[in-house]
Design a protein around this nucleic acid. Sequence first.
DNA 1: CTGAAAGCGCTTACAG
DNA 2: CTGAAAGCGCTTACAG
Lengths: 346, 346
Amino acid sequence: MNSKEIAKIAGVSRSTVSRVINNYPNVPPDTREKVLKVIKEYNYVPHASARMLRGKTSKTIGLVIVDIKKDSEIHRIYDNVYFGPFTTAVVDFANRIGYNVLITTVFKVKDYKKVKEIFYNKTISGAIFVGVRNSDPEIKSLIEEGFKIAIVDQEIKEEDEVFNKSIIVNMDNLNGSYEATKYLINLGHKEIAHITGDLDKLSGFARLEGYKKALKEADITYDAHYIVKGNFVEESGYNAIHKLFKKVKPTAIFAANDQMAIGAMQALQELEYAVPEDVSIIGFDDITISRYVKPSLTTMSVSLLQMAELCVENLVKSIEGESSIVAKFLVSAKLIERDSCKKIID
Amino acid sequence: MNSKEIAKIAGVSRSTVSRVINNYPNVPPDTREKVLKVIKEYNYVPHASARMLRGKTSKTIGLVIVDIKKDSEIHRIYDNVYFGPFTTAVVDFANRIGYNVLITTVFKVKDYKKVKEIFYNKTISGAIFVGVRNSDPEIKSLIEEGFKIAIVDQEIKEEDEVFNKSIIVNMDNLNGSYEATKYLINLGHKEIAHITGDLDKLSGFARLEGYKKALKEADITYDAHYIVKGNFVEESGYNAIHKLFKKVKPTAIFAANDQMAIGAMQALQELEYAVPEDVSIIGFDDITISRYVKPSLTTMSVSLLQMAELCVENLVKSIEGESSIVAKFLVSAKLIERDSCKKIID
DNA sequence: CTGAAAGCGCTTACAG
DNA sequence: CTGAAAGCGCTTACAG
């Protein structure tokens, strides 16, 4: 079924069918009705490719999930607890405003080839990227070529001026981490360790900064012995504890995300430290699991829905040229008090 | 940049450019090289819509996530722990064989309109459906219209002959539930309750059947008082326990999925029943959370990767007409013993 | 208010 | 081995 056939059946020309579909004003009501009736009867929907070829935009955005890890860790992507809810929210918001979402994964640098292809072949009119490291050259080159891009969790450095042509949506990592650390300090803790995330991602770097800021404000000397590097996955939190407790014995821990906090709790249990009686621990992200671990995990919550909405809305605005708004958004984090932290009395 | 320009620069005709791109054999090596060089230099990728219009398939499949619930529950979709890993796996397998994945959510029956549209307008050449209830008329009509469809978790009833034209990928719910229940029986339990899932979904219905089958085999009388209806979400597991323990006092519980098992564990704790000391509990699905709850949850694990692979591979085969294979696949479930079940000694 | 015609970028018989 | 031409299904100036 195509517009020619519809035209014949309705007794008009293809031009008129097209005018009806595209809501041209200069079609008399009864002609419109007549055509609409035939369209409905035959379930006719114009061929998307033909429309595009004629200049309409694809009404499709890409959602690119980047998760580049060492080979040994590759399997972990499948149970990433963070991308799922974000993805669903992106799809939902996009669909609501008439856009489709094409989802692509990038596990290795060379997978960016797939992404470029769907940009070059006009399948997508723009894309949202999650999980990219700071200053990623692949993303930069895409932006330079003029493609519309929104990025979650990206630092804008002075030398990366090119990012000013994209939409950046970040969590307020700095203040969130500051609040998390301050919360521990207010509970009376002074020996507070930090398990970092990937330091080449904004969320890793900025959360370390927030931790430092809170210590400084409370006149607690920053001590590198209390810092262990992690990479946002459970195992790294688990390993961090074993490494950490060989050197020092903190009374509280701020883990850069919940997954590492949960791994850390397992290790603490093995070492026979009770949480929160012996050691308090706070995470970041408020993933679904955190409510269900024992003790339930105190953490900083950021609205993924809000982040998804900001990405989709602004990307689409930019695609449709309503405005060339390219902006940086900061979504705040909020403390969720649960059972993994305890006041110190001395 | 289009094929005409590439042709001009390379000093050939558009026909030749097209032949190079489509790997026609009748292009001499040096001509091919010459053209390829220009293509590379200009990052030229043929316009996907133009190719489609000329008859190539879209190389895009849909992934339709159906989650129709009452309004009051709508927010829950965002943290569905099940679709995330499956989605990533589908995307990964599809991308590997050169297919894109368009993802769409269906929260209300009328959202199926979106799905039909992308079929009718040729954006997708086929689709994988998850979360649909048994015998869903919307899906049936799509299959009847000749669209290529794979469905996860769907019962094939005699009267639904139309499903024989689609690809069905199911977990082995019956045997899995049978094994789960039998495991409890072997541990010495005789008073075993069951929290059901949505009974209008295959996974809900068939898991109840497996439970019954195991009881029967062990000569334990089936008693409806030990059955509570749930709907696969945590709250329903939680509520089920409160309802259940007003009537009976089972020593073991088989929950139709892990989420309900986890909700149930919370309720048991409130009622001051220790797990597994007072009550044993087993779930189904082995979601990520289950490793981290305390006590860790014994459950039946099904490979979502394998299910994703079966869906993608067979759907693509069917689209490309390699074979008109339309088959039913059954992916087996395997017991994961953890800490939530205990042997009864008497 | 409406139709005939051009053209979006590609592929593929067709002719040579 | 290669180019000119037709045509996929649509939209939109253009002419009336």
